[in-house]
Design a protein around this nucleic acid. Structure first.
Lengths: 334, 334
DNA sequence: CTGAAAGCGCTTACAG
DNA sequence: CTGAAAGCGCTTACAG
């Protein structure tokens, strides 16, 4: 294949220099006179020359590609992370291979091998939950960064949303609105996202000397669970004026049960949820206030880290990014 | 970079043959004795040799990569299409570069150039609506296939869901259930998806000698519009027992207004919608029956066509894929 | 500061 | 059937 376009020799010819010199000029090496450099650059521009990546790669150069191995089947996490990374790398510098391992370690390994054969300069792994992920199936000779799901390996580098902070922000927001009788409805308690968000809620409540008006109700990350949990909560006679839901799906279910019971949101009960999944949070009435996990930014940070590591730096640890509350009608009113 | 692994010369050495022979054996060329071929293959396996793609590419070989240029910011279309393509190509044969042009033709051009410099063997363009898309910004020397949004260029090849068929299937389903007083709530009438689905509905109704009980109400592709439209429809005193919604968002809005008015679904009114966006369609009560657009299959077809075109065949036209109705509680009951 | 030469890891005519 | 040689489009020591 190759791109059928002009080759370096054409540029060199047009500029009246050797390929070697043309190469150096184009790569900004010092040992070229300014005049020569200009001639070459101009010729290159004129012919709209694009160096053949495969040839560069063969010298031991970078391929200008990165592999993103996802495991969220719908792209809810991986697409914004990919976009953030794209912005961080720059379109012309790095292109990203996107694959989905579909939660299968064997498939992951196949993707890894295929992408390594294509000479990617690094990998971004995107998990589907914030729990630590098992080690990668094989030795990888290029830098690796994990996003969303941290790696359990000690000298790996991960970027994850700060779900404790998310819990704090949701809670603080309700307190700021003057709500004191708070309840918490959560998803599957096996998720670290649950534990973390729960911890953040607790921290802020403790600081304010406030207690939840009812034990945490945890179940699934679904609207059905949100509906049921709120129905039960109301049936139990609990009096609450603020509700924290651990996902937008739960939040939507909650809104539905509240509406059905004639409870006004946010007047009687202010509701804040997590994830800020727009198709869910912005389509209901009232629209849901929700804590955003900043996927785009996480992707951007991952790209920058990868760039540094490709430059030879060693980095490791779990980097945590604060979340960001998006306020909408369910706490603010219209 | 290159993969640090074994090179062809290592395999050749291990097998006791020349690199040339090893290459031929590995590539299944005829002029190698069976015994030699076996020796080479075994050595290759033993060393888990993976040919350096960059080197192969440099001979004029294929790069084993394809560019997918999307424009749906959330990956709702492009991720399943990518997965379908991945299955069609086979993980080891082709890796796909995923980029999002974000609806910007300039950005699209940049992505095109970057991917061509990387020697992709073909492109898949994924649009965000089924309306014809403007021509690609530049001449592309490799095969191109369009998915979802057909190209307006005469000798291009496109794969799109058959939305007329989708309208037909939704309507026929309601008729099969014995519903005769049907209403239709649609999204933005500027979309071809609107016109097509509408046409399919009309076709089946005409065939059955049935008419819609109210003029089509068209607005936006949102839950808010679904809520309002159904509210208005009921307020107008229209008596209906079947409702077709042109998207799941509209469908969810409709369900909400029906519930609020105490109308039972599907007993009083059966509801069927379009898109089968699972996070919306399966999380409500009752769950929505919905027509699936078969993105995965579209992606698979696109990959097969691309493979054929890379093999030298010329293909063009707009290929239409029948949709598939997924029946759930909103028409079937529990 | 410039260019001829070697080489990255493969494949492909071409001899033998 | 097998292998030596040339070459894909670049980059990088090395001379000059």
């Amino acid at each position: 294949m190759g791109n059928g376009g002009p080759r370096l020799r054409d540029v060199a010819e047009a500029a009246g220099v050797s390929v070697a010199t043309a190469s150096k000029a184009l790569n900004g090496r010092q040992d070229v006179s300014a005049a020569t450099r200009d001639k070459v650059l101009q010729a290159s521009r004129l012919l709209s020359f694009r160096p053949n990546r495969a040839a560069q790669q063969l010298q031991g150069g970078a391929s200008g590609t990165v592999g993103l191995i996802a495991s969220d089947l719908d792209g809810r996490f991986s697409i914004p992370i990919m976009m953030g990374a794209e912005d961080g790398f720059g379109i012309e510098n790095v292109s990203v291979f996107l694959t989905d391992a579909r939660g299968d370690l064997i498939r992951e390994r196949h993707h890894l091998e295929a992408l390594m054969a294509r000479g990617v300069d690094g990998f971004i792994f995107v998990g589907s939950r914030t729990d630590p992920r098992p080690p990668i199936a094989m030795e990888v000779p290029v830098p690796v960064v994990h996003v969303y799901a941290p790696s359990s390996e000690p000298n790996s580098l991960s970027f994850v949303p700060d779900n404790v902070d998310a819990g704090r922000k949701a809670t603080q927001h309700l307190l700021d609105l003057g709500r004191r009788r708070l309840a918490l409805i959560s998803g599957d308690p096996d998720y670290v996202a649950f534990t973390d968000r729960r911890a953040g809620v607790g921290e802020v409540l403790d600081g304010a000397g406030v207690e939840l008006v009812a034990p945490v109700r945890s179940g699934e990350w679904s609207e059905a669970w949100g509906r049921r949990a709120v129905r039960d909560l109301m049936a139990s006679g609990t009096d609450f004026d603020g509700l924290i839901c651990s996902s937008d799906q739960i939040g939507r279910g909650a809104l539905e049960s509240l509406a059905r019971a004639g409870v006004s949101v946010p007047d009687d009960v202010a509701v804040v949820s997590h994830d800020n999944w727009e198709v869910l949070a912005t389509q209901c009435t009232p629209q849901l206030s929700s804590v955003d996990m900043q996927f785009r930014k996480l992707g951007h940070m991952a790209s920058q880290a990868l760039l540094r590591m490709m430059g030879g730096e060693k980095e490791s640890g779990v980097v945590t990014l604060p979340c960001s509350l998006v306020v909408r009608e369910s706490t603010l009113g219209v």
